[in-house]
Design a protein around this nucleic acid. Structure first.
Lengths: 189, 189
DNA sequence: GTCTATATTCGGATAGAC
DNA sequence: GTCTATCCGAATATAGAC
């Protein structure tokens, strides 16, 4: 039954987000999904296989959500601002970014691949937006597109870290305002 | 013997950095420190107590290292650039930032306090530097000091995440160049 | 496909001898 | 202060019945 696999994958996505890879046990996944032990090991080879499926799905979802803002209307600055101001559950952190901290994830190519690809894509996509803005005469050419894109993505990822450390979303919002404030000086017109 | 406590704390610092809180077992700490089980439980109440001591020490160290750059010579921009360009083991990530991802750390006030205080201090200190630069006429007043400071700290923390995801320090360096490039437009003179 | 039983190792700690 | 012995539950599966 596809529903069982789906529930397992969704539960794994949820628990990886909340507890990380090391902190997520097969048993916890089964309970969260309401699925028996035998059932899980019938559909998946084990914890790594299931986690890989969950991460691939999270990667797809993250990408779709980001693309919605980046392909939206308005100038390059507007689209970056839309991406940065998107509603987020800041205190939960980033589903993908969190995985980058876990040595077991980084050590397993199957687990690391979705994480790496997601951020590669995101940086590339933001760099395109910056370059488009420069080509359209909306932004000065002073800022390198790839470097600026990396800074924007890093602000989001770092903002999550600061917010969780502080126990409030405020530092995330400050960081977003901060980078947009800096970028604003590069607008033309 | 103080040396035993010290070795335990240092080993814990090391392992927390590498494996995180959930991923670090008392046994691993003992082995890394070359100290027996009984000895560890004689000097510390258990894993949380030992981790708290290790985090407090890491917090002191991080603060001293950052202050060295931020209190250095040069303009505000120079000092921020010095902080950003400091030599780092980028692929190891940040000892403090990593802890913010761990729910068990965030849930325990004793463990979270050093993390929270470190980032509060760092953002405050960087905001001072920005404000000093504005007062000295080196930087425009367009950028809010607290917001800019949060963005700078977030770039570092996010840079670590991107670098670990990529398996190379390159995205960290891009992000640093990116935020410095944006900030450069605010320099006067 | 799903269930229950069983196995092995680790995590985190306590107890008491030396 | 340090060591060894012991404890109990959790993590991560495998085996085989239904």
């Amino acid at each position: 039954m596809a529903a069982t696999q789906d529930r397992l994958i969704e539960s794994t996505q949820e628990l990886l987000w909340e507890r990380g890879y090391v902190g997520t046990s097969p048993k916890a996944i089964q309970q969260h999904a309401g699925v028996g032990q035998g059932s899980m090991y019938h559909h998946f080879t084990g914890k790594p296989g299931l986690a890989a499926a969950a991460l691939r799905r999270s990667a797809e979802q993250m990408r779709a959500i980001a693309e919605a803002d980046l392909a939206g209307p308005g100038t390059a600055y507007d689209r970056i601002a839309a991406y940065l101001h998107r509603e987020r559950e800041v205190l939960r952190g980033c589903r993908m970014g969190r995985m980058a901290q876990d040595p077991d994830v980084i050590a397993d190519p199957q687990l690391r691949a979705p994480v790496e690809e997601t951020f590669d894509w995101l940086r590339g996509r933001l760099a395109e937006v910056v370059a488009e803005g420069q080509a359209a005469g909306e932004l000065t050419s002073a800022a390198d597109p790839a470097d600026t894109a990396a800074a924007v993505v890093a602000v989001v990822q770092g903002g999550y870290v600061l917010a969780r450390a502080a126990g409030t979303a405020e530092p995330f919002e400050q960081a977003v305002r901060g980078v947009l404030g800096l970028l604003a000086a590069h607008r033309i017109g």
